[in-house]
Design a protein around this nucleic acid. Structure first.
Lengths: 123, 123
DNA sequence: CGTCTATGAATGAATG
DNA sequence: CATTCATTCATAGACG
């Protein structure tokens, strides 16, 4: 209900509240509520994405395309590296150059991370 | 192991070192190690926070509470009624036998990462 | 029974 | 460091 009402990422407070409410029906923990929301948002997006991507061209069986082998679509382990529209790509991350890459370093010692070039791909 | 030993935020140097070590088992980059530590520390904290929020006051439903609206079915599994653009195949379910809630998660033999199992109840 | 789907859980990655 | 997103894994239950 709350989800439908627009709640997508409840904060700790809200989660706790919800958890208590649900608690009247059985054992439940905050993490469950947390996961529930996480998963729902994710899957909503996922489904939407998947659906949209299929509206580009022929719905099924690409013309002449060797749609080969990969028929097991269902969440089954097989990953093909090509054609994935927006695959994550790494940063520049080289820890190798840490001898001098530190020039961005702020006063705080342990930043090891955010001192690397920003870059591509926003979700 | 190192984490358990107290290491929480390794510096670039340490990360590099660890990375090399792990490298003998497969491809791995410094950022992976970095993220690993970040995430672990974060989740440890997160969990604690979420779980804590409920320990302050009446953990159970106060007497005569308006347990309001939320209509879930069988206790245990959190399930909301028809909603979200998903749920296309909603079957008609009748209340069948209930079952004691009992979830099981398999234990990864050589993970060394299960240090902060989110699971509270004994498995 | 084997398969498929919905879902909870877990964790890697990335950004603010 | 906190938050959020994406992906993956495991499993229960519906179905043929």
């Amino acid at each position: 209900m709350l989800y439908r009402g627009g709640m997508r990422t409840p904060n700790a407070q809200q989660i706790e509240q919800i958890t208590v409410q649900l608690g009247t029906y059985g054992k439940i923990e905050g993490k469950n509520v947390f996961y529930w929301f996480q998963n729902h948002k994710a899957r909503e997006r996922q489904k939407q994405k998947r659906n949209s991507l299929g509206l580009s061209h022929s719905p099924r069986s690409p013309p002449g395309t060797t749609m080969t082998t990969i028929t097991l679509e269902t969440r089954g382990q097989v990953e093909r590296e090509e054609d994935i529209p927006c695959k994550k790509k790494c940063r520049s991350w080289t820890f190798e150059g840490l001898e001098e890459e530190k020039r961005f370093c702020k006063e705080e010692g342990d930043k090891t991370l955010e001192l690397f070039p920003l870059h591509p791909e926003g979700r």
